[in-house]
């Protein structure tokens, strides 16, 4: 019986060894590379987490209602806060967004849909890419020359425009990419339904590309909120709440810059608290924009 069975079996093949061998050169190399990747990831996250840790530890203690509403203290005063700087930063980032988002998105419409291959488009795209690496202090100097000197005053306007100059390329390039990702067949469908080109853009391409556009906008806003160099020559600083847009205006980043260099304990503590407030603000906008712009479909 067993003989018959053996005859019916297929001829035996010599199977290669399939067991794992940890001492093989391949396995060792793979292990070393994996370990290296883990090590580098941990190394890279040390500064990240230590910054956040320090911010919470050093700034958290002073980040109370007084800090976010009161005016900055002078000299040896105790207490005080940076309410005016929060308002100033919000107003100037708001001005910058109001300028750079519409201009950037419409420029992106031109670059990605209307005339992607034209001379104007290729030149602007190249310049936008160059401008993303533009030293931010130059934006400040540029706006100082065209707005501060001509109006003869530092102002929230000038600060907002300087931030807009920095936001514009990021918004434009991100929006262009987002709109380019909208599949051609969706555009064909819209044209086939009897849409004009304007309707195709506003009813189909912009809504479909919105999540990508918003990601670019968040990045730009976060970057602008943290900028100090372009505000040095444009908004300057102020120790009071702003009364109008055409006067020197406080901002969180300049306040941090000023206070962290002072020899007073109180001011240094406030600088930490302001840093934490800035990070929380950027985080808040980030989450908000993600919720609003989440792709529903």
């Amino acid at each position: 019986m067993s003989e018959v069975n053996e005859q019916m079996m297929p001829p035996k093949v010599v199977l290669p060894k399939l067991e794992k061998n940890l001492y093989e050169a391949r396995a060792i190399k793979s292990f070393l590379l994996t370990a290296m990747v883990w090590g580098l990831v941990i190394l890279a996250s040390i500064p990240l987490f230590s910054v956040i840790y320090m911010l919470i530890v050093e700034g958290g203690a002073r980040l109370d209602w007084e800090a976010i509403t009161a005016l900055p203290p002078a000299g040896f005063e105790t207490g005080g806060g940076f309410g005016n700087a929060i308002v100033g930063t919000l107003v100037m980032v708001g001005i910058a967004s109001a300028i750079s988002i519409p201009v950037g998105v419409l420029a992106a419409v031109y670059l990605s849909i209307l005339e992607p291959q034209s001379k104007l488009a290729t030149t602007s795209r190249f310049l936008a890419k160059v401008l993303t690496g533009f030293p931010s202090i130059l934006a400040g100097v540029f706006v100082y020359a065209i707005l501060v000197i001509t109006t003869k005053t530092y102002s929230a306007w000038a600060g907002g425009v300087a931030l807009a100059v920095l936001m514009l390329p990021t918004v434009t390039l991100a929006a262009e990419e987002a709109m380019r990702q909208v599949p051609q067949r969706m555009r064909d469908a819209a044209f086939g339904m009897g849409c004009t080109r304007t309707q195709v853009i506003f009813k189909v391409i912009l809504p479909t590309g919105m999540p990508g556009i918003l990601t670019g906008v968040i990045l730009a806003v976060a970057g602008a909120a943290g900028e100090s160099a372009p505000l040095l020559f444009t908004a300057l600083f102020s120790n009071y709440y702003m009364a109008e847009l055409a006067e020197p205006t406080a901002s969180l980043s300049i306040l941090i810059y000023n206070f962290s260099g002072m020899p007073f304990e109180n001011q240094i503590e406030l600088a930490w608290a302001a840093s934490l407030a800035l990070v929380v603000m950027v985080l808040f906008f980030n989450i908000l924009a993600r919720i609003v712009g989440r792709s529903k479909f």
Binding site: P183, R185, M186, D188, A189, A190, G192, M193, V204, P207, T208, S295, K296, F297
Partner: peptide, 13 residues
Amino acid sequence: GMVFQLPNPFSMS
């Protein structure tokens, strides 16, 4: 009206 080779619904409901 037109119906295309590849289905092309908009990314809407």
